[in-house]
Amino acid sequence: MSQAAFYALVAGALTGIGIYGLITQRHLLRRVLAVNILGSSVFLLLVALARRHPDYVDPVPHAMVLTGIVIAVSATAFALVLARRYHAATGLTHLPEDEESEEALAPGLLNRRSLADRRSGGGPPPGQPERRQGARRRSDEDRRSDEGAQ
């Protein structure tokens, strides 16, 4: 088995680790780490493929990887800024997985209550702010008024 094939196998293994990490870990920073590992494993595969020819080294995958690295770092930078802003806004460092916490995040998003309320014969006219069951944090209640939707 040639050196390129060996490194391609390593790249495959790293891809597996990266995908496993991306799906199982819920912490945002760990997910960004997993994405970076996945990215570098794909680049390793590309570089290994470039090295398969005995008489020359293929420069095109090298150019692809170089472009890929810069794209990866810019995507990571933006993801991290988003994560920071999300943490500043919600105080959480993981995305809400199930629907319930989705409700806590933005009642307007999946307005469970107003559905039940509408079924029991027409909610109060939308002009007036609707009474909502207490979401987990009272303070968030007042800040999120109707005008919040954009």
Binding site: A8, G12, T15, Y20, I23, L45, A48
Partner: peptide, 30 residues
């Protein structure tokens, strides 16, 4: 809990395994 429920972990492991096998098999045979 910082990790997803069990079924998601199993699914991820299976997916990762499939991927590793696929790329490995291709890397060797290509």
């Amino acid at each position: 809990p910082m990790t997803v429920p069990r079924w998601a972990a199993l699914f991820a492991a299976a997916l990762a395994g499939l991927l590793v096998a696929g790329i490995g098999w291709v890397a060797v045979g290509l």
